[in-house]
Design a protein around this nucleic acid. Structure first.
Length: 213
DNA sequence: GTATGGATGTTCT
DNA sequence: GAACATCCATACT
């Protein structure tokens, strides 16, 4: 199993300039990066192991029909949070992409828990490690991510930000062994497009086994 | 391990 | 009224 194996002390905030502009490139780039959530003096972190791209002109994307009050974050600068509520139960965390007014986002689908695991266990009401952040709804609940964080800048240290683990993590998935690619989960439109990216073999990746080869 | 269906609230037709 | 970027409990192999 590939483990994140990150040293928390070396966290460095990601600068907007180093984020790829294109949605699909960003979805791949974010694998291996760290989500940092700070609430009430508590820090929870996890390594991104699964993403989905919702690029411009994608009929499955919330931005497809243009700007609405809900999706406005995706029409702003990249590197911000787009958080929305769905299925009556769950919040989803996305990282905005593209240049302003275009519309693009990357759904964060799974994390490998790193720091603050006891708090995630409390938030999720389970001690089972593998169930804490495997899936977009679960990870949002574990990290206490809700609508209040919609629009937050992920490139400045605040309640929610993105980090690099520093030079110690050299095993960023590129192709072949570590980078898995599949169709996206739970959509009906454009369901043939292979825009889901994941760390192959990682225990915290969601979805059916058949998609995770 | 896989398959199914219900719960739930917001958005859009 | 339908669809929805999901999760959970339950039933079954």
């Amino acid at each position: 199993m590939s483990s994140a194996n990150v040293s928390p002390a070396s966290l460095r905030v990601l600068h907007r300039q180093e984020l790829p502009i294109a949605t699909i490139a960003l979805a791949r780039y974010l694998l291996g990066k760290i989500v940092v959530r700070e609430v009430a003096g508590v820090r929870m972190t996890g390594c991104i192991v699964e993403t989905e791209a919702y690029p411009p002109r994608d009929p499955a994307a919330h931005h497809y029909r243009g700007l609405t009050p809900r999706n406005r974050a995706m029409f702003g600068q990249r590197g911000h949070a787009y958080v929305y509520f769905t299925y009556g139960n769950h919040f989803m965390l996305n990282v905005t992409a593209e240049v302003p007014d275009v519309g693009g986002g990357v759904l964060i689908r799974a994390l490998e828990p790193l720091e603050g695991i006891p708090f995630m266990q409390r938030n999720r009401r389970t001690t089972h490690l593998r169930d804490l952040t495997r899936g977009p709804g679960r990870l949002a609940q574990a990290l206490q991510i809700d609508r209040q964080l919609d629009g937050v800048d992920l490139c400045s240290q605040g309640p929610l930000w993105l980090a690099d683990a520093g030079p110690t993590t050299t095993q960023l998935p590129r192709r072949g062994n570590l980078l898995g690619i599949s169709t996206r989960i739970g959509i009906t439109r454009a369901s043939h497009r292979r825009l889901r990216f994941f760390v192959r073999g990682n225990a915290y990746v969601s979805g059916p086994r058949s998609l995770n080869r």
